[in-house]
Simulated assay, not measured.
Amino acid sequence: MAFSAFLAGLALASPATSEPASLAEFEAHLAAYTSATEALQQWCHLRHIGEGPIRAGTVGAQSDDPPEKMRRILRLGGDRPLAMRNVRLSCDGTVLSVAWNWYAPERLTSAMNAALRDSDVPFGKVVGPLHFRRETLDVTPGPAETCPRDTVSTHRSLLRLPDGAPLAYLIECYAAANLAPH
């Protein structure tokens, strides 16, 4: 865990978790982590939202962004595969976010592709061994795109491999449940 993530955790470790969290606290916590999955896992623990692992339940809906745009962003030629995963990330039944994730399956191992296809393990957890870095492109307060109505913040991000190659493009819609008192 990065030192900034450690500090973000300390700031939230007070026993007053029955109070609602501010959006600024939540955004600072997310920004302290390379992986949104890891940030949400720690947030759940600190806010007593749940103790279980973050799970990615497949939604299956498509976003309005056309595949050609994603191919350009991910630097994929027309004949190279492009995959998309639309999921609800939750902890012990509480939905924390809805995410659209376009990625280059050829930049993952076959075991990673199988896990993304066949399990409820979140993308960040599956591809963590690739040591990606997260580049936040845009943060919008409230819902954007096709986010659910209870979205408090929408993030657009690009995950890059250590050599700079783009791995995934994400739209993440963070739910109001993240700020609710627990």
Rank of each mutant, 00 (worst) to 15 (best):
Y33F: 13
E51D: 13
F123H: 08
E106D: 15
I73L: 11
E68I: 08
H48I: 00
K125N: 10
H131G: 09
L170D: 07
A168L: 03
L46G: 07
D79F: 07
P67F: 00
T136E: 13
V152N: 04
S4Y: 00
A144D: 14
P148F: 08
V98W: 13
L23V: 13
S90C: 12
Y169A: 15
N86A: 15
P166A: 05
S97N: 15
G124N: 06
R133S: 14
G57Q: 14
N113A: 14
R134D: 01
A32W: 04
V121D: 11
R75K: 13
S63Q: 10
S157N: 13
R134L: 01
L116P: 09
E19G: 02
E27Y: 03
Y33I: 03
T94G: 02
V98D: 12
H182T: 13
P166S: 07
C91F: 04
I49N: 02
P81I: 00
V59C: 09
I171V: 15
G52H: 06
V87P: 07
H45P: 00
R71H: 08
T146G: 14
D150G: 02
G60S: 06
P20C: 03
M112P: 07
R80S: 14
T34V: 11
T140R: 15
A32F: 03
L46E: 00
P67M: 00
D64M: 10
L74V: 01
L137Q: 14
A16H: 09
P162A: 04
R85L: 09
L161K: 06
C173W: 08
H45R: 15
S110H: 08
T17D: 11
L10T: 06
V126H: 03
E51H: 13
L137C: 06
A21I: 07
E38W: 06
S14F: 00
